[in-house]
Amino acid sequence: MKKGDSPSLDDLDARLKEARARKARPGEAGEGKAIAHRTGLGLAFRIGTELVSALIVGVGIGWLLDRWLGTAPWFLVVFLFLGAGAGIMNVYRTVNRLGLAVGYRSQEAGEDRPADEEEKD
């Protein structure tokens, strides 16, 4: 009989609990991350620049080393390949972080733990 007599008290109780839970729960920034990374062109740009910039750095270092040490194209070639490798690794890590890699369990919206790069190797 008690519960039936006081529906408003139980309702208030439920609302109180819900209000407290809402405050304690951390924000939903994961959702924003997902939104930002889903635009086709934006995604393409991100992945592209990761690859290109690694190549640029590799070629740049290689070229500078060649000029400094005078060893004609060898450092350039080596660092070209290293840069390409670094670029591909960059792309892999970026895609991993977005949860798009094959066979990778998603760690998207709702996760509070920040993405760590190293363990994904």
Partner: peptide, 16 residues
């Protein structure tokens, strides 16, 4: 490769 990847970060940020 890791070093290159690390160094490519400012480059990719700025180019993007």
């Amino acid at each position: 490769i890791e070093i290159l990847s690390y160094l490519s970060r400012p480059v990719s940020l700025s180019i993007r």
